[in-house]
């Protein structure tokens, strides 16, 4: 029952932040960041198990390793960028959050280029010359 623990810590931290925000807003912000990181790390183990299973299935199905690895990296980049953007937006810096999201999108596009190249080459081979 991980969900009860996560919800419990969320509610407790919400109260603490409410108390702390009156006195020192900086500490309230740091506390919220800290809680976000704790929840994420607690969930990372679960995600790792799912990914191990997916990797096993992909190896059994003889999927090209490049595709699988690229997709995993894209998911990782998306998580990190989302986390950073949320933290920055919590601190009231919406413009920096937008830049972080833009960087995440750009890096994902760069990582997807090999796959797109493969697809386009396949289509060009299929098409009659």
């Amino acid at each position: 029952m991980e969900i009860i623990q996560v919800v419990g810590i969320g509610i407790i931290v919400t109260f603490l932040v409410l108390v702390l925000k009156e006195q020192k807003p900086v500490f309230a912000f740091l506390l919220a960041t800290f809680t976000g990181i704790i929840i994420f790390i607690a969930l990372a183990g679960k995600i790792a198990e799912v990914i191990r299973v997916l990797e096993h299935l992909a190896t059994q199905a003889h999927v090209n390793n490049l595709f699988f690895e690229t997709i995993l990296k894209i998911v990782g980049i998306a998580y990190i960028a989302e986390f950073g953007a949320q933290v920055t937006r919590d601190a009231g810096q919406g413009s920096i959050a937008s830049k972080i999201e833009m960087a995440g999108k750009l890096l994902i596009m760069v990582m997807a280029i090999p796959i797109i190249t493969v697809i386009i080459e396949t289509i060009v081979q299929i098409l009659p010359a």
Binding site: Q23, K24, L30, L31, F34
Partner: peptide
Amino acid sequence: AVFQIAGIGIIVA
């Protein structure tokens, strides 16, 4: 650590 941070904040205030 959550309570540590909250405590540090309150005491510093």
